[in-house]
């Protein structure tokens, strides 16, 4: 009886520690979001969202940065989506386990692990310098696109694998070719999952700073981009710049919080949408 009591006690203590860890994580998220929300919402008004920065970035808004982030993100997903879905189709529908597939998977895993600042160096070396695109939307989009490629591949492959094998069998048994089966049956069934993954990729691309520092981001410009070869401001870089490089760091604190809040609202909003869609799909999936 004694030993049973002791065992229960140990369990209680262990669970206490485990619960505490989880609480700490939740608190950390809540505190971070709370601080930025409380300090940031005051800065946000119509002018802030629609006007360019003024007076050496101590006043005014962040409109060029919003536009820049929008273009960079759009460019990144335009590059990553087709490549990512195609890779996933190969891995899920065509590939048979072997050396080639193993190599591709190692490639994807390692690409996912490349530090974002190294992506920045790569983008600088290849797109900005070697291909001569300069610091531009194009260079930044390509860099970000390759950065989120593994995210898109992973999500798409998972979505394709969740399509029941019976659909493929049914199509093949009706005289469908492999490609007809993929195109007409598997892809439509996997599409919601693929889109969810792509939304997550967009969120990731929007929040990254280091990859665009040397490839796309401008310190300050009021001019909106007119071509893909233009430099742009971007929300994450703008936060960094205001918080570290300005001459009036303390006076612009509210602008920093405001920009951070806009960025967070965008990124977390995107993620929430993805999470909700995914939960819906999982509930609806009867197969």
């Amino acid at each position: 009886m004694e030993s049973r009591k002791k065992r229960k006690l140990i369990e209680g203590m262990a669970f206490g520690v485990i619960r505490l860890s989880t609480v700490i994580i939740c608190l950390a998220l809540a505190i971070m979001l709370g601080f930025i929300l409380v300090n940031g919402y005051k800065a946000i008004n119509w002018t802030f969202l629609t006007e360019p920065p003024m007076d050496a970035m101590t006043k005014g808004g962040i409109f060029p940065a919003i536009v820049g982030t929008f273009y960079l993100t759009l460019g990144a997903i335009t590059i990553a989506f087709p490549l990512g879905v195609a890779s996933a189709i190969y891995l899920s529908e065509y590939a048979r386990e072997g050396k080639m597939v193993r190599l591709i998977r190692i490639g994807i895993n390692n690409l996912a692990g490349v530090p974002s600042v190294v992506f920045g160096l790569f983008g600088l070396g290849l797109f900005v310098v070697f291909l001569g695109f300069g610091s531009s939307i194009l260079s930044g989009s390509l860099t970000l696109g390759f950065l989120i490629l593994p995210v898109i591949i992973g999500a798409s492959e998972e979505a394709l694998k969740a399509v029941p094998q019976t659909y493929r069998e049914a199509s093949l048994a009706l005289g469908g070719t492999r490609w007809q089966t993929i195109y007409r049956v598997v892809l439509p069934a996997a599409l919601p999952g693929i889109l969810t993954g792509s939304i997550l990729g967009i969120g990731r691309a929007a929040g990254e700073t280091a990859p665009i520092m040397f490839t796309a981001a401008a310190f300050y410009t009021t001019k909106l981009p007119s071509s893909v070869f233009d430099e742009v401001m971007a929300l994450p870089y703008h936060i960094y710049v205001l918080a570290t490089a300005g001459t009036h760091i303390d006076e612009t604190r509210h602008l920093q919080y405001g920009t951070a809040l806009v960025l967070i609202a965008f990124v977390l909003g995107i993620n929430l949408v993805a999470i909700i869609i995914r939960t819906r799909i999982r509930r609806k999936q009867t197969y």
């Binding site: 990254e208 700073t209 960094y240 967070i264």
Partner: peptide
């Protein structure tokens, strides 16, 4: 909890850095 962890993962690093700084 699962979304909490995912949202933490989704927080842009510049925002976490900013929080650490200010």
């Amino acid at each position: 909890l699962k979304p909490v962890v995912e949202l933490l993962a989704a927080l842009p690093s510049v925002v976490i850095g900013f929080f650490g700084m200010v």
